[in-house]
Nucleic acid binder design. Sequence first.
DNA 1: CGGCGGTATTGGTCAGACCAATTACCCCTT
DNA 2: AAGGGGTAATTGGTCTGACCAATACCGCCG
Lengths: 181, 181
Amino acid sequence: MRQEGGVVQMEKKRNAFEMNISAIKTMIEQDGFVPGDRIPSERELAERLSISRPSVREALRTLAYLGIIETRHGGGSFLLNRDDHTYIQIIAQFLVTGDSKFEDLAGTLRLLEQSVFVQRTDWSILEAHIDSDAAFREAMISTVDNDLFERIWRQVNAFYQSFGQGELYTRAEREAFLKRS
Amino acid sequence: MRQEGGVVQMEKKRNAFEMNISAIKTMIEQDGFVPGDRIPSERELAERLSISRPSVREALRTLAYLGIIETRHGGGSFLLNRDDHTYIQIIAQFLVTGDSKFEDLAGTLRLLEQSVFVQRTDWSILEAHIDSDAAFREAMISTVDNDLFERIWRQVNAFYQSFGQGELYTRAEREAFLKRS
DNA sequence: CGGCGGTATTGGTCAGACCAATTACCCCTT
DNA sequence: AAGGGGTAATTGGTCTGACCAATACCGCCG
């Protein structure tokens, strides 16, 4: 039922484009590149994968749009640090649909963070971060042991902060959280 | 501060690739296409936008990967129904990072849905859907007036359901929700 | 009127070329 | 020997044109 991320990738007959993305990603992993490294040039990737450069480019453009890599004209393509850039996907959502209100960002963050309070009662560990809105909220999320949830929160939060917004909660609101304990 | 999705797209000097994606999206909107429609061919898009077909393809490949459109060899490109396919972005996250546990899906859905309960007390409207897990949860989310939050939930939920999982809550759990009112 | 086959359309892929930006490297000067 | 400058090589960005493969279209034939 569930797909296994192994080398056995003959499930269905995924179209060539997705196979190219997968192949490039696999090559990057196998070669042991880390965020910041320059990955092989388009021409070298094309040769090693036995596909044309246009096909390589179509895959790389998508990886760049997803925030996986960054391309510099004349310089090469570089592996990015995921946590810093995956929120681009959220931006993509905004660009594509175009009907989301900007105010939704703050509201969504509040909803995500409030959900954490449903299943925990002791919040004394947050007292140390009462002075910083960002650190306070970060600590809240870290108590949840769920990678996907945490990643979604980080994307929305990074996008929110990219607009230079101030504090999401006032100090009084943060203190109110603690009193619930 | 916030980006405005108008025709005046000279903000910064966004690279040509993103401008192409934006231009195609704008054209689709202006021509009044709705989900299911076939959009202009690659060659026609290239001519109308005064760019080459490879450039059009690089943009279309990304749109297809994001689940905005679907391409059929020899048939054309079709605008997809967003709600049904944007969860592909979540899948992309899984593919790219590869370190998220599958069980996170159910956990994330529970967190998202429980967060709704923080700011509402009367849940009598859910009684009508007590028999259906899917309808019950759908009704829960619809009470939140936040497009972004709702879209995130739909993506995770669609991805969860694509694996053919059964009910997220047992009937007893659903009844427990109502008793909190 | 319905099935069938040819043709036009459309996406998929490739080769090659040229431009632009960056990087690498060698040589000259000091 | 060290530093700087300028040229050549590398690399991404874009385009032209071509050909293949799958589909859609349409008219012909039964």
